[in-house]
Simulated assay, not measured.
Amino acid sequence: MSNNQNPTSTHPEQRLAELGITLPPAPAPIANFVTHIQEGNLVFLSGQGPLDANGVLSKGKVGAGVSVQQAYDDARLTGINLLAVMKDALGDLGRVKRVVKLLGMVNAAPEFCDHPAVINGCSDLFNAVFGAKGVHARSAVGMGSLPNQITVEIEAIIALEDA
């Protein structure tokens, strides 16, 4: 079985390289909060959005001008930003014992109903990077709006390996 089929045997940062992903600097908070808090062996990551390498946020309403595929890509980009925060917080993504939970929020038109397909962009990324450790509990919900009209916002809870 190749590493693409069994990423659990590979370090997460090696998997990122294999996927052609270079982590950006961790995005700075846009208001009065911090990017993460560690409590015991849990790390709570504040919500991140689809901020690209040029500092541009993807904006719009899913189901009203933004397709499910575009929003999926935005959720994947948001996952990359969450990984950047994890790397900044932990120093080494190999310290991740498992991704415990994601909360995915979709800036959705009232009639939109495929929120899980959007947040799969982040879930699929975490599964590819962490293998079995990336399988997580999750909520995917629609919102009437999100800060700066971004398409998605995702927060995460991560468990750490025992020190």
Results as ranks from 00 to 15, higher is better:
A28K: 13
G121A: 12
V85G: 02
G121N: 00
P110K: 12
V43N: 04
E13G: 09
M105N: 10
M86S: 06
G63V: 13
D52P: 01
L160W: 09
I154K: 02
C113G: 04
P27E: 03
P27V: 00
F112D: 03
I80D: 04
S2H: 15
P7N: 12
N107C: 03
T151C: 08
M105R: 11
G121L: 00
L83C: 10
M143G: 06
L16E: 05
E161A: 14
A163R: 05
D88T: 06
I150S: 08
L51R: 07
G63E: 07
G134D: 04
D74P: 13
R98H: 15
P27C: 09
G49I: 02
V106Q: 04
I154P: 00
P12N: 11
P25E: 12
Q5F: 15
L57K: 02
G20T: 11
H115E: 12
Q70S: 13
A64T: 12
G55N: 09
I30Q: 11
L77H: 02
A71Y: 05
R138G: 05
N81F: 06
H115R: 08
G40M: 00
V118K: 02
V106S: 02
V43F: 07
L83Q: 07
I37H: 13
D52T: 08
I21L: 14
A137W: 09
G20D: 10
A84T: 08
N54R: 15
T22A: 04
